[in-house]
Amino acid sequence: VGKSTVDDDVLDELEEILITSDVGVDTTLKVIRRIEERVARDKYMGTDELDVILREEVAGLLAENQTEQLSDFEIPGGVKKPYVILVVGVNGVGKTTTIGKLSAQFKNKGYKVLLGAADTFRAAAVDQIKLWGERTGVPVVAHGMNTDPSAVAFDAAKKAAEEGYDIVMIDTAGRLHNKVNLMNELTKIKRVIQKFIPEAPHDVMLVLDGSTGQNAVMQAREFTKATQVSSLAITKLDGTAKGGVVIGISDEFKIPVRYIGVGEQIEDLQIFNKDEFVDSLFKK
């Protein structure tokens, strides 16, 4: 954006930046329309000002955390323990890895953490989460492969309640959101946990792959229908993909982004920072 006044070239360039960040046509046009309106009011706006306004407009679409703004790897205060996080998403987005990384962060904060290996379907999924548990020193409730995932989730919740755990995170098998049976299975897992802890899960975290394009919108829609998603984690932002689709998702479904994944190691998880995220869209 190297011009002194806001003209069509500047707006075209803006459009390209947003579209190539996977922001999507609708959300991009929405942002541009709002910029145009503001420019029309103040005809002589310079590009410096445009930069500020643009960042404001984009950041404005990212939903705020409904509960309280968590500035660290914490769970909201005043919740009866254990705090249950159900982790869902399509295949291969990084659910298990995110759980592994999160368990280390929560543990560092002094929480007593338990994991539930409710992906009993994908080859060696139980081994994978067990290895993460070993890495981070967090116990894993597992019944083995090809067992009932609801039973695993139930047992994990039960153990957590009985043994005074603070947080329990349930890993689930990757599933495409257009597969009705698999989505129903998720609803069932949720119901089974509620039999034991009525207010659980306290958080249903949808994990999105940062390199996914517009299909992520459908993912958000369908997973929300099945499980009332309450937070998002965006993974694989250590690459060149920008993850811009989350802006439209956050705006449409009012779900806050909580974490971003920036690598495969334990420490590669960060609290989502709106301003840094918006900045990264405009970084060359």
Binding site: V90, S211, T212, G213, N215, G239, T240, A241, K242, V245
Partner: peptide, 10 residues
């Protein structure tokens, strides 16, 4: 992954 967005080219 067929769900990949704009970054597929890079």
């Amino acid at each position: 992954d067929s769900m990949t967005g704009q970054d597929a080219v890079n």
